[in-house]
Design a protein around this nucleic acid. Structure first.
Lengths: 232, 232
DNA sequence: CGCCAGATTGAACCCACTCAATACCGGTGG
DNA sequence: CCACCGGTATTGAGTGGGTTCAATCTGGCG
């Protein structure tokens, strides 16, 4: 497998054919009236400490949220695709608690907090759902971090992306990773070299076809088997 | 340090002098009218798959919630003290997603979901806060799992318990662990032997005084130093 | 009274980390 | 236009922390 670098993927996002279940998208008739925000690679949507006046619905592109501890440790808390909501974790607080950054060109819909808590808007219940979804997703990843080895974690990560892309109407076999190996490793609790090694190994095993950010899942069922521990 | 076993702590909980910030406790004037449920060691409050009709406010005792994956992996997602709310992660779903178990004698206040979503009750906003708190706490632990070694994780765990006990009006120095080493290790992503080893080491270093479930924090500031990575 | 769950401790192994070198692309400045 | 540089990715070698396996100990409970 050849060496490769950060090629800025310029491929535009394809049109989504499905609505993400559980998202705010289907429940925001006022969506078109809300302010939108375009963002470019590395652009910051909000930072920890800033006054949290809105939540952000991802409309296009991929974003990451990162948590920074006071002693300098950093961790990617999640990657966010179309339909995901960012900033809900700040709803009980005055300020955001993490940074949100665009990994690529994208577009956000900004939903003011006043609207979220406005009973007549009927959003609170849906935001509650989004939050509960977040908790369940986090628990799933905590389980993954605590019980799986490097190979299983990376496989789980790819499968998660694949599933989410599929539910958005994209191909589940073709992944264009917008995040770096360091981001993935950070999210999975692995060194970036470990991520690379696993990807190389899965490429050798003909399960993946890895060309830097461009990953093709050749054998989906084999990948699924890899993502879970061996049966006793 | 001597060998010790699971001694069922019969010491009753002391009265709390403070209200947990962010909990439902202060916002439930109807609390006294709601059904309560006493529970004993190992008793199950709810199980994954059961219809989720209520959330549960911990009134006394310690509970744990555990997530079970379809391939048999299990993980403790959290330990819950007085003032914490269990079951909010199921708010967007028909059924609970995890098991909740009492680690000791305790008492719960059952809040029906219908009341949670009743606008006139004014609970939804507070439940949203509880959920956002959960997300932030989970993120903190994900950061811990991903970036800290065994000693730092165990130290962080003890400090977290200490802080929570203090905010409930108890001593921050005296911890009566209601959970087993296996529970702690599972929660922290460590083997139970590693937890034991760290506790023994901290006992040797005069930072803790460990007698099975009874842990005294002798040197709180040293423990705080241990919980963070060495300065560069 | 025996059994079992929980806790502790030791020894050997192994996976993932660290350190290091190499390669490649994109943008920038001369 | 081209050389250079910073960010990203890959791969190898060696090390170490945590796991695994095992034995032992204790007290509660049936």
């Amino acid at each position: 497998m050849g060496i490769c670098v950060a090629t800025a993927d310029r491929s535009d996002t394809q049109p989504a054919r499905h609505v993400v279940p559980g998202s705010l998208a289907g429940h925001l008739p006022q969506t078109l009236l809300l302010p939108r925000r375009r963002s470019r690679r590395r652009q910051v949507v909000y930072r920890a400490g800033q006054a949290a006046r809105s939540v952000f619905l991802v409309h296009a592109g991929v974003y990451k949220t990162t948590l920074l501890s006071d002693d300098g440790r950093e961790r990617v808390t999640g990657f966010h695709l179309k339909g995901d909501v960012m900033g809900v974790e700040a709803l009980g607080e005055a300020a955001y608690r993490c940074d949100a950054t665009a990994l690529d060109t994208g577009e956000l819909i900004e939903v003011p907090r006043s609207l979220v808590f406005d009973p007549s808007a009927g959003l609170l219940e849906h935001v509650t759902r989004a939050l509960a979804d977040t908790v369940r997703r986090d628990w799933y990843w905590m389980l993954t971090l605590a019980t799986l080895d490097a190979e299983q974690r990376v496989a789980s990560f790819l499968l998660d992306l694949s599933t989410r892309q599929q539910s958005l109407g994209y191909s589940p076999h073709r992944l264009l990773l917008r995040m770096t190996r360091a981001d993935i490793g950070n999210f999975l609790g692995l060194a970036l070299e470990s991520v690379t090694r696993v990807l190389s190994r899965l490429d050798d095993a003909r399960i993946l076809r890895v060309a830097c950010r461009d990953v093709e899942i050749v054998d989906l069922s084999a990948l699924r088997r890899l993502a879970r521990p061996a049966e006793p």
